[in-house]
Design a protein around this nucleic acid. Structure first.
Length: 434
RNA sequence: GCCUGGGUAGUAUAGCCAGGUCUAGUAUCGGCGGCUGUCGCCCGCCGGACCCGGGUUCAAAUCCCGGCCCAGGCGCCA
């Protein structure tokens, strides 16, 4: 087949390109065979477009290629873009020749067009077909913009991107929920957070961030938990919880503006009407949240973390993004700094979107003696943290930071209610494949 | 870890509670045929399924027990 020199993308197939000649590459999304006239919907990275083929105008070779066509086959066609009022899209490609580059099997185990519903299990079993649906692919195109916008924003504030180990010798935040791995003749663990490393690294770079996968061996089986997730983490020297809350707010706003600008088409595909939230985000304290719950008849013992039902109630009241601050010190990990005015409270916060926890952070303890005390109070063994504690002897500035769940943020931005939809290949207690 | 619900063609479902009329219905899908403007094309014919094992019963997709698998909720967390 002779190839015209210019590749035309699906998004080029519109009225203003009437007369444009070239070739198209992509996957057969749909086939509508009317006999003498055949319509194919072609899908490429830019979207879908319609191809029209008249059997009596095709060569013998192209006709035999056309007989091989099946949904999801990879094809190449030569053709011309035509403004076409008879097509609802206003334009189509009049095909001169067609070649099947890679034939797909029939029947496919999964309906890419979406005429028939698929269960979450089927979708994940055939994830690579599931992702071919434009509205599923759109989630990850938005995700790409989110990651880019995060890097752009944090670097603009002087943060340095770092990479810390995924394979660690001991727990960072308590003993539970770690995956064991065989490490030569030793037992090691998969990191559940970069917490201690990023704190140490502020003594080198002052401001660091890391975007990467972390692992939690939680028994959770819910729509918002997976065992391998992506965390966006920052840590900043000479800063407290309020400083990093401002950064988090600014990041969310920047990300949303960027997504609105770069991913209009994807947002439309997902039918999402995204709005830039107004700053500053609402901030309520733990004690205020407790009073709000009490006013609707939920009495809660002071000191405990919120249950899911309580968060749902708070989320009903506070739509959109908001912070809950000043959690009881004992409900937080050992490295969170207690308030100087009241040691029972901590300089901590969670960023919420309605009832979903997106991020949690705070001012960290920068004094070694206090940190050791808190480790002990948490029932952990300080000697397990020897390497970390030593760092506090070498000049440790006040610092603060947070960790933001990337997939959860993506859930919020794409209005998805199951986190498995916002990660390409989810891992949970029951799923290790594909 | 605890609790709840579910498993019927490739996919998604009806049927199950109240066992027989289920030779298991429908949609999509696949095969064949027809169709020159479809756009979730349409029309006709054909094809394909009761998770596994045991039990109850004259009779089991349906009831009971065990197993496997899946979905969701709680606690915990991002």
């Amino acid at each position: 087949m002779q190839k015209l020199e210019k590749r035309i993308f699906a998004s080029d197939v519109n009225e203003s390109n009437d007369g444009l000649a070239g070739y198209l590459l992509g996957w057969v999304h749909e086939v509508r065979d009317l006999g003498a006239l055949v319509f194919l919907i072609l899908r490429d990275i830019t979207g879908t477009c319609q191809l029209s083929l008249r059997r009596n105008e095709l060569s013998k070779e192209s006709l035999s290629e056309l007989e091989k066509i099946s949904k999801e086959s990879v094809i190449m066609v030569d053709g011309v873009v035509r403004a076409e009022p008879k097509s609802r899209l206003g334009a189509e490609v009049k095909v001169m020749s067609i070649k099947v580059l890679s034939k797909s099997v029939e029947p496919l185990p999964y309906d890419v067009v979406g005429k028939v519903k698929a269960s979450m299990n089927t979708r994940l079993e055939y994830r690579i077909l599931d992702l071919r649906r434009p509205e599923h692919r759109a989630i990850f195109l938005i995700g790409d913009t989110v990651l880019n916008a995060c890097r752009e924003y944090l670097r603009s504030l002087g943060f340095v991107e770092v990479r810390t180990p995924r394979i660690i010798a001991t727990a960072t935040e308590g003993g539970a929920s770690l995956f064991e791995v065989k490490y030569f003749d030793k037992i090691a663990y998969l990191a559940q957070s970069p917490q201690l490393y990023k704190e140490e690294l502020v003594t080198i770079f002052e401001r660091v961030f890391e975007i990467g996968p972390f692992f939690r061996a939680e028994e959770s089986h819910t729509r918002r938990h997976i065992s391998e997730f992506t965390s966006i983490d920052i840590e900043a020297a000479f800063s407290n919880y309020e400083d990093v809350m401002d950064i988090l707010e600014g990041l969310i706003v920047h990300v949303i503006m960027k997504v609105l600008f770069e991913r209009k088409r994807e947002l439309e595909l997902l039918n999402v009407n995204l709005k830039v939230p107004r700053r500053p985000f609402l901030r309520i304290t733990y004690d205020e949240a407790l009073r709000e719950l009490e006013s609707i008849g939920i009495k809660k013992k002071w000191g405990e973390d919120f249950t899911t039902e309580e968060l749902r109630q708070l989320g009903r009241k506070h739509l959109g993004f908001y912070f809950i601050t000043h959690f009881p010190t004992d409900s937080k990990p050992f490295y969170i700094k207690p308030c100087e005015s009241n040691e029972l409270l901590s300089e901590s916060f969670d960023l919420m979107y309605q009832w979903l926890e997106l991020s949690s952070g705070g001012t960290r303890i920068s004094d070694r003696a206090l940190l050791e005390r808190r480790i002990r109070e948490k029932g952990l063994n300080p000697s397990a943290f020897n390497y970390h504690l030593k760092v506090y002897d070498y000049g440790m500035p006040q610092h603060a930071g947070w960790g933001l769940g990337f997939e959860r943020l993506l859930m919020v931005l794409t209005r998805k209610t199951n986190i498995r939809e916002t990660i390409l290949f989810p891992r949970d207690k029951f799923r290790l494949m594909p």
